[in-house]
Amino acid sequence: MTVASKSVAGSAVAQAISQIPDPEVPVVSIADLGILRDVAVDEAQRSIVVTITPTYSGCPAMEAIRDRIEHEAGVHGFAAEVRTQLSPAWTTDWMTESGKEALRRFGIAPPGPAHAAGPVTVRLSRHVVTCPHCGSEDTTEISHFGSTACKALRRCNACREPFDEFKAL
């Protein structure tokens, strides 16, 4: 992400926007998730152009994120234009290390590296996911599709707790 800013007020609004939490996973920011692609602040015009990229095509959180960006900009006295950028397509590889750690502490297994060939060629049996509760690697997938499009549902065979896994995409 690039943050272009010309003044202190400008960087404050850019900072505030980068810290907006994800509506579904509030422990990580949209910057941590790699959803926020660009913030361009025009101090003279009191306007800001924010570029975001959707995680999944139908992700309903995008509407909430858009609203929140406009709200945060308004609080700082800026008019926001939110642009959606499809290409290059979002990948979980853009997630920051601190974001992945925050997910783990929240009880969601962070995504492994996204493979160019995708999950079809990756056998699930070789796909090691560590339990975010007890750290065991002995976990099994219950469902490819969890509570949201970006997550799968798993169970830990050691501590018996179910947990979400953020799917590599």
Binding site: P54, Y56, S57, G58, C59, P60, L86, I142, S143, H144, F145, G146, S147, T148, A149, L153
Partner: peptide, 20 residues
């Protein structure tokens, strides 16, 4: 119930593709 969610998720992906 996991399958309710799975099929709804697939549906949502397709809906998002159609919207764009």
């Amino acid at each position: 119930i996991e399958e309710d969610m799975a099929l709804a998720n697939v549906s949502l992906d397709l809906l998002g593709q159609a919207r764009a």
